[in-house]
Amino acid sequence: MAEPEYLNDRERRAWHGFLTMQEDLRRHMNRQLLGASGLSLADFSVLSALSQSPDGSLRVFELRELLRWEKTRLTHQVSRMVTRGLVERRSSREDARGNVVALTGQGRSAIELATPLHVNHVRRVFFDVISPRQVDALAAVSEAVLQALQDEPIED
């Protein structure tokens, strides 16, 4: 096996900054959402995805792919949300073996209340502090890395 090429100072600064920003931003957004709406960032992600579906529901595998979550994470999150009355599980009409996750009235109200608060906060802590050029660069970087991940074989 070849010796790894270690990160230089510039790469290390960028990588560490990216990871730190991502973790701090998630934690900050989660606290803000919980305080403003009672929803966690994970709750918001599920409700937002469902609310964008024409009938407010998605098959479990569609929701999992859309959120890019592991099956176990989605199962646990949906179970917590069912208990709180935000979503419900149903059998799929198209395929009796499949399950659907659907918004409840309470879930729809919660996402409608939380969305403008969340969007305003995202704008304030993220987009208002970077330039349009940085937005474009971030989009390009994200797309390039996501494409590389899609092309990368998974090694065990």
Score class of each variant (00 low, 15 high):
M1W: 11
R84I: 07
L63E: 02
V87T: 06
E23Q: 12
T75Q: 13
T75E: 15
A42T: 10
L86H: 06
S92R: 03
S48D: 06
K71P: 04
Q32M: 07
T75H: 12
R80Q: 09
L7G: 08
T72P: 02
S45G: 15
D43L: 03
E70D: 15
E23I: 12
A49N: 02
S45L: 09
E65M: 12
E62Q: 12
D24Q: 11
E23P: 01
F126A: 13
P116F: 12
A2H: 10
E155K: 13
Q134E: 14
D43F: 03
I130A: 01
L149C: 08
T83G: 04
A96C: 02
V129G: 07
R59K: 06
M1Y: 08
I154V: 13
A139D: 08
E112W: 00
M29L: 14
D43I: 00
L138W: 15
G38D: 09
R124G: 04
I111L: 05
G35E: 09
L67Q: 04
F61K: 06
G56T: 05
D43W: 05
L117Q: 04
P132C: 11
H28L: 13
N120T: 10
T83W: 04
L19K: 06
D55C: 05
L74R: 01
S45W: 04
R27A: 13
L138G: 15
N8L: 00
L58R: 01
A36S: 07
R84Q: 06
L19Y: 04
